[in-house]
Measured scan of single mutants.
Amino acid sequence: NQESVVAAVLIPINTALTVGMMTTRVVSPTGIPAEDIPRLISMQVNQVVPMGTTLMPDMVKGYAP
């Protein structure tokens, strides 16, 4: 099972992602793959992401799977 990126904290809208904001977990449905965390650093979320929420591609500005 592939791990997906999950919010480790509440991430406010338009916040640039940092390593500490993200964790990984096997979830269903799957979100952004864990191995993409290095690509996500400094990208901004386009909505509020509650802690424990799986990051989906459409939540991150400029992210393309």
Rank of each mutant, 00 (worst) to 15 (best):
I37G: 12
L40P: 00
A16D: 14
A7H: 01
K61W: 06
P57S: 11
T53Y: 13
L10R: 07
T23W: 09
T18H: 09
L10A: 11
P29Y: 06
L55C: 02
Y63R: 05
T24A: 09
V6G: 02
R39S: 10
V5W: 01
A16N: 07
N46H: 10
I13N: 14
P38F: 05
D36G: 07
M56S: 12
M21I: 05
G62N: 15
G52N: 14
G31R: 03
V5T: 12
P12W: 06
G62Q: 11
V26Q: 13
P12G: 11
L40M: 06
T23D: 13
P57H: 10
V9H: 14
A34Y: 05
Q2K: 03
T24C: 03
M56C: 03
V26G: 07
V5D: 01
V27G: 04
R39G: 06
N14V: 03
P57D: 08
T53Q: 11
T15E: 10
A34E: 15
R39C: 04
V5P: 01
A34W: 04
G20I: 12
A8K: 09
T30I: 15
N1V: 06
E35Q: 06
A64M: 10
A64Y: 05
Q2I: 10
P38W: 05
Y63G: 06
V60I: 15
V49F: 01
M51L: 06
T53V: 10
P12T: 10
M51H: 15
G52Q: 10
P33D: 05
N1C: 06
V9E: 04
A7C: 02
V26H: 09
M51V: 11
S42Q: 12
R25S: 11
M43T: 15
A7I: 02
I11V: 06
E35R: 03
T18F: 10
I11H: 00
Y63N: 03
I32E: 00
A16H: 14
G62C: 08
M59S: 04
E35V: 06
P57I: 05
R39K: 14
T24N: 10
T30R: 03
Q47F: 11
M43K: 13
T18V: 08
P50D: 15
R39A: 06
N1I: 05
Q2E: 15
M21L: 12
E35G: 09
M59E: 01
N46C: 05
V48M: 11
K61G: 08
G62R: 04
A34P: 14
T53G: 05
N14M: 09
S4C: 03
I41M: 09
P38M: 13
G52T: 11
A34V: 14
P29V: 12
M51G: 06
L55T: 01
T15M: 09
V27W: 02
N14G: 14
S28Y: 08
P29R: 03
M21N: 09
Q44F: 10
M59W: 04
L55S: 01
L17C: 01
P50T: 14
I11Y: 01
P12L: 06
A64K: 14
V5F: 01
I37R: 15
V6S: 04
M59K: 04
I32A: 04
T24S: 10
K61P: 13
R25N: 15
G31E: 02
P57G: 15
I11S: 00
T53S: 08
V19N: 11
R39M: 11
G31C: 03
I11P: 00
Q2R: 02
M59L: 11
V6Q: 07
G20Y: 14
Q44M: 09
V26N: 07
S42Y: 12
M56D: 04
N46T: 13
V6I: 13
N1F: 04
V45K: 00
V19Y: 11
I37N: 02
A64S: 10
I41D: 04
A8I: 05
P33G: 07
S42E: 13
Q44I: 10
Y63P: 09
V45T: 11
Q47A: 06
V6W: 02
M59G: 01
E3C: 03
E3I: 04
T18C: 04
L55D: 00
V6L: 05
A7L: 02
S4N: 02
P38A: 08
P29G: 04
I32M: 04
V26S: 12
I13H: 13
P29S: 08
I37Q: 12
L55N: 01
V9M: 13
V19G: 08
S4E: 00
G20E: 14
A7V: 03
T53N: 15
D36W: 08
T24Y: 09
A64T: 13
K61A: 11
L55W: 00
V60C: 03
P50Y: 08
L10T: 09
V45S: 06
S28C: 13
I32G: 00
I13P: 13
T53I: 07
N46Q: 08
P57M: 05
S28N: 10
D36N: 14
Y63M: 13
G52P: 01
P33R: 07
A34R: 05
V19L: 13
M43L: 08
P12F: 04
G52M: 10
T18W: 04
G31M: 05
V6F: 02
S4V: 02
V9Q: 12
I37P: 01
L40E: 00
T24R: 08
V60L: 08
T30H: 15
L40R: 00
V27K: 06
P57A: 09
I11Q: 00
M22Y: 02
M43I: 05
P57E: 12
L40F: 02
A7W: 02
A7Q: 00
N46A: 09
P50C: 05
V48Q: 15
K61H: 13
